[in-house]
């Protein structure tokens, strides 16, 4: 991760908020999955979204990335409204994501998965691809180098030429992060990156998240495991039944009465 290249177009410091969720609501038929939620993610931080099962966390991610656009409200990224933009446009603006139930391209090698991630940062046109022009050749080389770099960065370079489906579980999660980083994002959304991890793996993952932030990428993660969240993020928003019930530092959230109720009430 030496050279991150040019910042995505339209990057600006603004008031420090890289992502603004502004009164976002998502309904599926009669069900309100996300109910009038508002918060900011600040540039350069590790921000966490927590909440019990079915609180609407993934739905919110799907709303941000354009998979299921919100029913109401606005999503502003780097000072520009991206509500309702298509998923591939969102990726091009500089938001990358991983999925709760790992969605790798299982029959592509790890290398190809990461190279695919750079799709929207490549310039080869049909003509270049057809005739393997020198420009295309150079670009492929560059993309391959960058992919190798990313595989190394997340620590799975030994699986470069292995099909994604044949990787061990933990490495698949890492590969997904590498693939997301390949899109050269300013904001990385991680959907339960530590799900199914052993305590040891969780510690390693926290290290990786810190490394990513050190590269200048803002990290916004959903996590179930309170320990991971408390250890890694400075600011937390808690969702329950689609509503925001708390926001603040880990300490503040931990002491919040509604949060305790939400967790004790549903989980234990």
């Amino acid at each position: 991760m030496t050279d991150r290249g040019a910042a995505p177009p339209g990057a600006q410091a603004g008031d420090g908020a890289i992502l603004r969720i502004d009164h976002v609501t998502k309904r599926f038929g009669g069900l309100v999955a996300v109910d009038d939620v508002t918060f900011d993610v600040k540039k350069g931080e590790i921000f966490a979204l927590i909440g019990p099962n079915g609180a609407g966390k993934t739905t919110l991610f799907n709303g941000i990335t354009g998979i299921f656009p919100p029913t109401a409200g606005r999503i502003v990224f780097q000072g520009r409204e991206i509500t309702g933009a298509k998923p591939h446009q969102v990726a091009a603006f500089g938001i990358a994501r991983t999925f709760q139930n790992i969605r790798l391209f299982e029959y592509m090698s790890s290398l190809d998965n990461v190279r695919l991630g750079q799709h929207c940062r490549m310039h080869a046109k049909l003509w270049d691809s057809l005739f393997k022009t020198p420009a295309e050749h150079r670009e492929e080389q560059r993309v391959t180098d960058r992919a190798m770099e990313l595989l190394q960065f997340v620590g799975i370079e030994q699986y470069t030429h292995i099909y994604a489906r044949n990787l061990p579980y933990g490495s698949q999660r890492r590969l997904e992060i590498a693939r997301a980083l390949a899109t050269n994002p300013a904001l990385l959304l991680l959907d339960e990156p530590a799900a199914g991890f052993t305590p040891q793996e969780k510690v390693e993952l926290m290290g990786l998240v810190h490394k990513i932030v050190d590269q200048g990428v803002t990290v916004f993660l959903i996590e179930h495991d309170m320990k991971v969240v408390m250890g890694v993020s400075r600011r937390i928003v808690v969702l329950d039944h689609g509503e925001k019930i708390a926001e603040g530092t880990p300490e503040q959230v931990r002491r919040d009465q509604r949060v305790i109720e939400a967790y004790l009430g549903t989980q234990h």
Partner: peptide
């Protein structure tokens, strides 16, 4: 920019 995005929404 916002204008082009609005179009993309449609």
């Amino acid at each position: 920019m916002v204008g082009s995005l609005k179009q993309a929404r449609i």
